[in-house]
Every structure is written in structure tokens, then in C-alpha cells.
Design a protein around this nucleic acid. Sequence first.
DNA 1: TGCCAACTTTGCTCTGAGACAAACTTCCGG
DNA 2: CCGGAAGTTTGTCTCAGAGCAAAGTTGGCA
Lengths: 231, 231
Amino acid sequence: MPKLDESLLTGLPPFSLLDRPQIREILDLSVSQRYDAGTAIFREGHDAERFYLLLDGFIRVIKTTPEGEQIIALHIAPGQLFGIAPALRRDTYPATAMTASESLALSWPVRLWDGFSAKYEGFATECYRTVGERLGEMQTRIVELATQAVEQRVAAALLRLVNQSGRRVETGIEIAFPITRQNLSDMTGSTLHTVSRLLSAWERDGIVHSTRKHIVVTAPHRLVLLSGAQG
Amino acid sequence: MPKLDESLLTGLPPFSLLDRPQIREILDLSVSQRYDAGTAIFREGHDAERFYLLLDGFIRVIKTTPEGEQIIALHIAPGQLFGIAPALRRDTYPATAMTASESLALSWPVRLWDGFSAKYEGFATECYRTVGERLGEMQTRIVELATQAVEQRVAAALLRLVNQSGRRVETGIEIAFPITRQNLSDMTGSTLHTVSRLLSAWERDGIVHSTRKHIVVTAPHRLVLLSGAQG
DNA sequence: TGCCAACTTTGCTCTGAGACAAACTTCCGG
DNA sequence: CCGGAAGTTTGTCTCAGAGCAAAGTTGGCA
């Protein structure tokens, strides 16, 4: 295992108040691991043994129903913590973390959590801020699911992806990891058929350009209108 | 204001590890207030100035869409904290808290939060446990909304209410606060018409007995079947 | 006691989007 | 370069449940 560089963590919210020796300590306690695309880092219901920081790649947080349907609760982008069950005093993971693309993550055993919180200024505060934000996102999604039509929900989901993990290309903004119609329907409580029809329609209207596992939003502002966001 | 009694807080999760003098301190810093049924204790978007503990009554936590539709995110029962924005480092309330019945709550200014966490053993831990549970509930509701039919969602909502705040009566289990068809539809992303039809059907089948603002579940086990909970 | 507002019920219509079915395309591995 | 798996598109059918409309019921208040 090559020695990790302190600059990896510098500037990331949970560690932004720390100096280099402190970051060095934290890094030395971590394990780093690479994952292929489409592998589970941990699974719902399993003992929460470690918490994670995504360095590169993208993670989907997934819940599966007893009937086998799955819905995507959340996407994690590089620089974010995930699997932070210990922060909420859970002893099992509430959902499964699956890589959307090849990924690299650091992790620590949960028993270090309380030490980190006590010892490192700002660590707990920033983590709970993250939890608060995710809670807010989840509330927003509940409201969306309860009140909006499928087209609005898919538009909103696409916009969220683009904001969180889009990168500029000549023709618009591209989602930075592979994503299928099925994935999008798992995020919105719909079906791949309906999502496919929507994307086709939007393609005709010049709002998006999509190919297999790959979406570029060419007219974000028009998507905003479709999402029903209030003006 | 009459002097409050320490026994009010004894045994409640956030304070269960504290002794009487400590509880006395906390109580002396609190303000207690009575609210009529149907009044807002705080509103979405307003500055989070205080956090609350419900002593008696019931609270609905509500989000309103820009279009004016509202959905009920959560019910709070006596003994639970609410408005705990400071725990998640938010400076505004993410939702509105409305009394479902006449209620009594204690509250403290948010600036005391960090002090409580630092000084009182178990306070922060228990609060974050609560946050974790609510997060889990919200995830469950997202999955429900995304995958289940209306009948299942309403059945599940009713069961949740009955578990959280039901009281035994001769004929079954009664929801301990006033609740309308509209409320139930606001919890499930449906309409009062559809909920009314469902309750009528269930009444015919002997599963519930309901009158205006008042529901008794007479056959909880049959509701469980309807809710699609896995057996 | 009677009125009114709030709550509930029920009928009818209409449509969004899920289910089913089948063909097509793309990419990867051998 | 071929074959097959994975992903996508499109058509048709169907129905759960929302929307609209109107009437009934209840309980609190004057």
C-alpha cells in the first residue's frame, strides 16, 4: 500500500479545520480500497463495522424492498463521507452502498468515530451538517414523490445529478458516471419504459442528448421548467 | 408559571442517564408553553431559535410545496424532542410544526444545545439516535411512496400511527389524536376522496371503525396484510 | 335550538403511466 | 469478427386513482 498524501483530505469539509499532522494521524488509521464498478461496499442490514470517505468514483445508496424492487436513496460524490451509521448510533447499515463506477474509498473502524469527534475540531459538526443536508434532501424527495407527476420527478432527479456531479462538455453538462434508464427509474419510483419515453421526448425537444448509460443535458434551464420548480 | 417537577423528564431517553439535580438545572433553563389544537409552534424557513420537547399532545411536522399542497413528514408523540435543527447545524427550521391536539411543550434556546451535549452524559447520543431513527422512517416512506399502491400506503400509515400513538379501547386500538381523511392523504400522497373510499371499504370489512376526526383500528392484523408488510 | 363551517361520502369521468410484448442496438469477450 | 448479454425503444392495452361535482353529516357556537 503506497503511503497516502495529506493533500487528499485537506479542504474536505470534515477535515477542513485540521492541520497536516492531524490529517496525517487520521490517514495513518485509514484503509484505502479500490472497487470495481457495480460492487457492493456494504449491504443493508449488515453490521456497521466501518465508515467511509469516497475519494474517487461514485456511489449509489440503495434500499431493496422485500418484493425485490430497489430504489436509489442517494448518490455520493467524491469527498463525501458515507456509511456513517455510527454517527446516528446505528449498529447496522440502513442501506446498501453500490459503486456506480470504479471507485476509491478510505475507511475507518467505527470505534474510532467517537475519538475523532472528541479530538478533531469541527469533525462532528461537519458530519452532522452533512446528515442534516441529507435529511433535507430526503424530505424534498418525499414531497416530490407524494405530489409530483413522473415527468417532474425525473426532471428533478436529472437536475440533482447534474448539480452534484455534472461536468461541462461542449454540448452541455454531462453526468459524470454511467447511468441507465433503469437507474433513473429507481431514483424516481417509475419504470425504465416510462423514463425511456421521457428521454426520447426530451431528445426530440433538444433538452438532453443520451446514449447507452450516458446522459448530457443540453438545456438545463428547460429541464428546470419541467421539474416544476417554483419561479 | 408554576414550578415544574423533575419527574416530567425522568426516564425520557435524552435525559435517562441524568440525576435529579441535573434535571432540575435543565428544567430551570426551559420555558413551558401550552398550545391550542391546530396552531403552529414554528414554521418552515424561520430562524431556528429554540428546540422543543413535547410533554403532552401531538405534533405534526409538515412540509408545504410551492403549489400549496402539504405533506405530513412526521408525527411527534409526548416525550420526543422536535425542532432539533441545531443538532444538524441548520439555522432555519426545515418544516413546520403544527399541533394536532392541544399540546404542552418545553423549549430551550438553541445556544444551550452545545452545552447540553457537552455537559450531560448521553444527551447527544440519544438525540442522534432519534435522528437516525427518523432518517430510517423517512427512507421507509420514500420506498413506500416509490413502490406501493395507495391502499398499502394508507394501511401502513395507519399502522404507524397506531403503533406510535394508539391506545387500547374495548373494540380495538384508537388513534389518540384527531385525524381527518385529508390528514391521512397528506401523509400518503393521496387525496381525501380516495382515503375516504378506503376507510369505507375497510369499515365494511370490519377492519376499522371511523367517525369524524377519529379512527379505531379493530383488526390490526388484517391491516398488516393490506400494508404489504412481508411475512 | 338552529345555523354554518368543517368534515365526509359517493358517483362519474378521464388520463397518466404501469404492464406486457417484441424488436432493435451497442458493446464486450472469445 | 461473431455471438450474446445488457441496455434501449416503441407499440398497445389497461386500470388505479385523481379530478370534478354534489349531497349528506356532524358538532360547535350564537
